[in-house]
Amino acid sequence: MASTTARIAIDAMGGDHAPDEIVAGAIRAQAELGVEVLLVGDPQAIESSLKQHTSSSQMEIVPAEDVVAMHEEPLVSLKRKPKASINVAMDLVKQKRADAVVSAGHSGAAMAAGLLRLGRLKGIDRPAIGAVFPTLVAGKPVIVLDVGANVDSRPKYLEQFAVMGSVYSQYVLGMEQPKVGLLNIGEESTKGNDLAVRTHQLLEENPRITFIGNAEGRDVLSGRFDVIVCDGFVGNVLLKFAEAVGEIVLQILREELPQGIQGQLGTALLKPNLKRIKQRIDHAEHGGGLLLGVAGVCIISHGSSQAPSIFNAIRLAKEAIDNQVLARIQSKDFQGEQQSAASTTEE
């Protein structure tokens, strides 16, 4: 069966640097990744951004009349603005005119639009945002979920996050038998709050995953785990903290290495190494998080995303499409085991 070119709908109006940086990242992605890009938003503003580039003649623009601003309440705004760029982008996926959505706009609006426009996958109670972090083991990333979709969670939600994260880790990140951990304050199964204790039992009993126990904060980036689950409140704090640490490390390197002639010579010699360091710890290199659990591929990028981050977000979307993440999550075996586990829990 011949492969088809992935079509990615980009919310060109979402984010602090829209539309210029969004358009720049999309142009690069279309040229280097072989994807087809649909730029959704104000045609005049998008065309103005496109004119800054010479290789943009094949970019398709899909008009949208409005945008959900960062300060607006998601559900109210989505209903009040049915032609907002994020709504139009989600509709393109629903209508099969696009295979994925990428947005650096209001993350709450992107999640709500995904749920309202696309719906949940069968057998999934709540979607989760999965973020990929580097670890101490080169070439062995860890996916953490949820990092913001659900401030409050139930044990069965975290169990579903573990299964979805395992599918992503195996088929996109290349981990043959992903090791799952539950973020907690101690290694013992009795540690933590009620949510942690009850979730630990569910994860232990689930045959669909390889659960190896609790993960403490120091374990997240150790490389011991491939998938770590937590509720969205804790996960979002962890995400923002990790991003800040990465930025601080990069800033320290910029400030300290060039000191004096010897420092400048050392910096020149270390340039390839520094580039690899940046690729491993800079959150812009990862593009954003995949909204797992909705019936469409959705990448939620940082509001401050610039062109490199948008490029990487589109790359994430393409990888999810190419590796059939949605089909694998909603496969019959997955649903059967999930429903069985849920029934056992409720009993």
Rank of each mutant, 00 (worst) to 15 (best):
I10E: 04
G15F: 15
A18F: 06
D20M: 14
E21M: 11
I27Y: 05
V37A: 13
H53A: 15
H53M: 15
S57G: 07
Q58M: 11
E60S: 15
P63I: 13
A64F: 03
D66G: 08
M70R: 11
P74D: 07
V76D: 13
K83G: 02
S85Q: 04
N87R: 04
A89K: 04
L92A: 02
K94I: 13
A100Y: 01
S103M: 07
G123W: 08
F133P: 02
A138S: 13
G139P: 09
V144D: 03
L145V: 02
R154A: 07
P155N: 08
L158A: 04
V167R: 00
S169M: 03
M175K: 05
M175A: 04
M175T: 03
L182A: 01
S189Y: 12
N193S: 14
L203N: 03
S222K: 05
F225E: 00
C230A: 04
V234T: 15
L238S: 05
A244W: 12
G246F: 10
E247W: 02
L250P: 01
Q262V: 09
A268C: 02
K271P: 00
P272Y: 13
N273L: 15
A295W: 09
Q306L: 13
P308Y: 05
S309N: 06
N312D: 06
L316Q: 08
E319W: 00
I329W: 00
E347N: 10
